[in-house]
Nucleic acid binder design. Structure first.
Length: 160
DNA sequence: CGTTGTTTATGCAATA
DNA sequence: TATTGCATAAACAACG
């Protein structure tokens, strides 16, 4: 079963979920993180189907970004002003589509519920990758003021 | 204002 | 057949 990642679907709806499409967009970026508008652009650039009804699918896409724990929002730096934040993938969600389907995952990636008592005082280093993984706060209150270097050489040009 | 995020709700279809 | 993942709609806050 061919799984072309580029084009050739014409005006037909590509066999990918919004989560897949978004993950593809993020994967494709050099820094493995993109602002919303760039995710839009990635999708509509190579899938003609998504050049219409933008209001509808972009709303759905935004819903997915907020709703799914597999997407992590990384705030902009003050020295890199712009509209929204950067979106990236949760490190524990990289094998999300290990079934190869890209339509429906076996299981939805979900962070543990706010069982606040669990690791109350086991504070890992605030900038370590462990602190991301163990962050079980609701998405709304989650704020990552750091850059997981796991995502490769991310540089703001004036990062010194 | 338009864009970006957050959240709740409903219905459908695939899976177990 | 019950559960779960997904698509869509919609209301709304926040931000530049």
């Amino acid at each position: 079963m061919p799984r072309p990642c580029r084009e050739s679907y014409g005006d037909q709806k590509p066999p990918y979920s919004y989560i897949s499409l978004t993950a593809m967009a993020i994967w494709s970026s050099p820094d493995k993180m993109l602002p919303l508008a760039d995710i839009y652009r990635f999708i509509s650039d190579r899938f003609p189907y998504y050049r219409r009804n933008t209001q509808r699918w972009q709303n759905s896409l935004r819903h997915n970004l907020s709703f799914n724990d597999c997407f992590v929002k990384i705030p902009r730096r003050p020295d890199r002003p712009g509209k929204g934040a950067y979106w990236t993938l949760h490190p524990a969600a990289l094998d999300m589509f290990e079934n190869g389907s890209f339509l429906r995952r076996r299981k939805r990636f979900k962070l543990p519920k706010p069982e606040e008592d669990k690791e109350k005082r086991k504070r890992p280093a605030p900038f370590s990758i462990e602190s991301i993984m163990s962050d079980s706060r609701p998405a709304a209150s989650k704020q990552l003021h750091y850059l997981p270097n796991l995502y490769g050489p991310f540089r703001f040009d004036s990062c010194k």
